[in-house]
Design a protein around this nucleic acid. Structure first.
Lengths: 191, 191
DNA sequence: GCGGCGAGTAGACAGTGTCTACCTAGCTCT
DNA sequence: AGAGCTAGGTAGACACTGTCTACTCGCCGC
């Protein structure tokens, strides 16, 4: 049911977001998106020169969503608790929004910086660096930016490996929380 | 130049390995592989019922390769040095074998356990657990298997994020080594 | 000698992304 | 008011993809 009040550009992106959520990344065909938006398969070309650019716009929506979910955590009084909350939300996003998460970190999309990932993740990373700095106040080395980088990588790796069951098989535990806590303790030092 | 001495099955996989190395995952078309193997596009079907199963066989080769590169590290006298070497080789593999690395961790391939990833990674993980256990001898908690899991995830995350430049942009450093050392120190405790 | 069969060919089919020619409603300008 | 232009979309072609099916050919055991 196409809403005539919104522009086709927005409708295409919205349809894509819904489609990747319900049917996964494999369903994100240019023609299928156009079909669900109620236009011919040539119409998207007016707004997106290539299929990849449309996918990028959809992925961008995912970054905005993730950013919204992690917003406001930087001001928490207890930086350590905030980091744990951030980690959980990150994992939860990866789990509940599988398709979108997969799309967001596709190599083809990120190469060439088609989407505003640079800006989106820089902001997100800034929050992380701030929290890490406060959580490790007084610890001289390594600098917060390095610890934050390693922590982000850790978080992302856990999300990735956990998602397809590689970790469940080796690490015998039914939820990620112990792993998350271990990672946080490791990077931030003992509580 | 098809070698008539090897079976078509092996030739297809070999061609795929070469192709993904030179032209990336996008070039791994069923028809192109068949073309380079010197057979018609229907021939692979005799050995691989579906395109995905052929890709899985190719990815499997990647796991074997990675396993070979990490082999022998478990016996090192200094477990910490061995872990650093392992981390570097893992990163080096991800960097020099981009296409293969990307292929190996595709969701579609891993879902359904088409390839022998379970076995391959379990063995690899065993080495990791052993090294972690020795490096943290005397430390009671958390158990080595959890630390190893977190460490593996960290390693993988660094490889992934580093590969597409997300980390270079935020963490301002030209090589990964500081990040690797920071991660190792974090998970293993101070040297 | 011959039937069966493993191994590969050839073609059809639906579906894809891209490109190009076309159409058409709505606007501006005289 | 009427001509012309253009943004926004249609329709079809093209080369390509993965899958499926009918077929052919050479080699084996009997």
């Amino acid at each position: 049911m196409p809403d005539p009040d919104t522009t086709l550009r927005d409708r295409l992106v919205a349809v894509g977001v819904e489609l990747v959520s319900s049917d996964g990344t494999g369903a994100l065909t240019l023609r299928e998106i156009a079909r669900r938006a109620g236009v011919s398969h040539g119409a998207p070309r007016r707004y997106f020169p290539t299929h990849l650019s449309l996918l990028s716009a959809i992925a961008r929506e995912g970054y905005l969503d993730l950013g919204r979910r992690l917003a406001g955590l930087g001001d928490d009084a207890d930086p350590r608790a905030a980091l744990l909350a951030l980690a959980r939300r990150y994992l939860d996003f990866a789990h509940t929004q599988r398709g979108m998460f997969e799309l967001m970190f596709r190599h083809e999309l990120l190469r060439g910086n088609q989407i505003g990932l640079r800006e989106a993740s820089r902001e997100l990373f800034g929050v992380l660096v701030g929290l890490v700095g406060r959580a490790r106040a007084g610890v001289p080395a390594p600098p917060p930016v390095v610890v934050a980088g390693a922590l982000w990588a850790n978080l992302h790796g856990i999300a990735q490996l956990w998602q397809w069951g590689s970790l469940q098989m080796t690490v015998q535990t039914e939820d990620v929380d112990p792993l998350l806590r271990a990672a946080l303790d490791a990077h931030l030092g003992p509580a």
